[in-house]
């Protein structure tokens, strides 16, 4: 447990256990997400990262432990209650509504009323494809465009915290580069907890980091420190930064 994380946490997980059927996936997960910037949640496949996000979102209920958001326990709340408290979620599958147009997807995501033109222009500035395909059904978009729509949906209204699960998965390098710019803009206005397998992407964006293994947090600290320590990367993630190049 390397560096001390300075900011007061926006989100705190303490001793969180999650069971899915007979499987004990999260085994006492503890980490904080400080307000502002991007916290990266890293780890090997099957470490429990997606389950951690789904547990925070209430899609799986923790069997033990506490999840605190802005000082309020959200562990037993339903998913809609958690969403209404100010947390947006972009799942690994993107989960765009393929039968609905891009516009209709965005309308549903804007819970508090009509779409805000300025906000929309801001989104179009880093995801221009969303403007181009505004009237197209989401089902016909490419994988990268679907990911842009999933993220656009999460940010169409200001949220206190955005949970994003592997946004670069399966995307072409050029699209990933574009996405880095978008996340840099996003992190200036909100807090993001981002699950990622692509270490280069994580290293270029992350401010703080938590690493999971076997359902537990095995490292917490700053991204800068982890990026600089190849031995630590190898021990925690099984691969060094060079291996991802």
């Amino acid at each position: 447990m390397a560096d001390r994380i300075p900011a007061e946490p926006l989100l705190r997980l303490e001793g969180v256990h999650t069971h899915i059927g007979q499987y004990h996936i999260l085994q006492g997960v503890e980490f904080d997400v400080p307000e502002g910037g991007i916290t990266m949640l890293l780890g090997r496949n099957g470490a429990g990262k997606t389950t951690a996000l789904r547990t925070i979102m209430g899609l799986w209920q923790p069997s033990r432990g506490s999840v605190t958001f802005e000082g309020r326990a959200i562990g037993g709340l339903t998913t809609p209650e958690i969403a209404l408290s100010g947390i947006a979620y972009v799942p690994e599958t993107m989960a765009v509504f393929s039968d609905l147009t891009v516009e209709e997807n965005m309308i549903l995501a804007a819970r508090s009323g009509p779409l805000d033109r300025k906000r929309l222009d801001w989104i179009f500035s880093f995801f221009p494809a969303m403007q181009k395909f505004w009237h197209s059904p989401a089902g016909v978009l490419s994988g990268g465009q679907k990911q842009m729509l999933a993220i656009s949906r999460a940010i169409i209204e200001p949220r206190r915290l955005i949970l994003i699960d592997e946004p670069t998965k399966g995307l072409a390098p050029a699209i990933i580069e574009g996405m880095i710019g978008a996340f840099e803009a996003l992190k200036r206005e909100t807090t993001i907890l981002l699950v990622e397998q692509n270490f280069r992407f994580a290293a270029s964006l992350g401010d703080t980091v938590a690493v999971m293994d076997d359902g537990r947090i095995v490292h917490r600290g700053t991204m800068t420190a982890l990026s600089a320590d190849e031995a630590l990367q190898t021990r925690l993630l099984g691969l060094s930064l060079d291996a991802h190049q």
Binding site: P80, A83, F97, D99, R111
Partner: peptide, 24 residues
Amino acid sequence: SRIGLLIRAGVENSEMVEALGYRI
């Protein structure tokens, strides 16, 4: 209608409708 959009979205992925803050 918005309710119609929600029904169509819910038929496709009710979990995501909940994650957007709607009580499915």
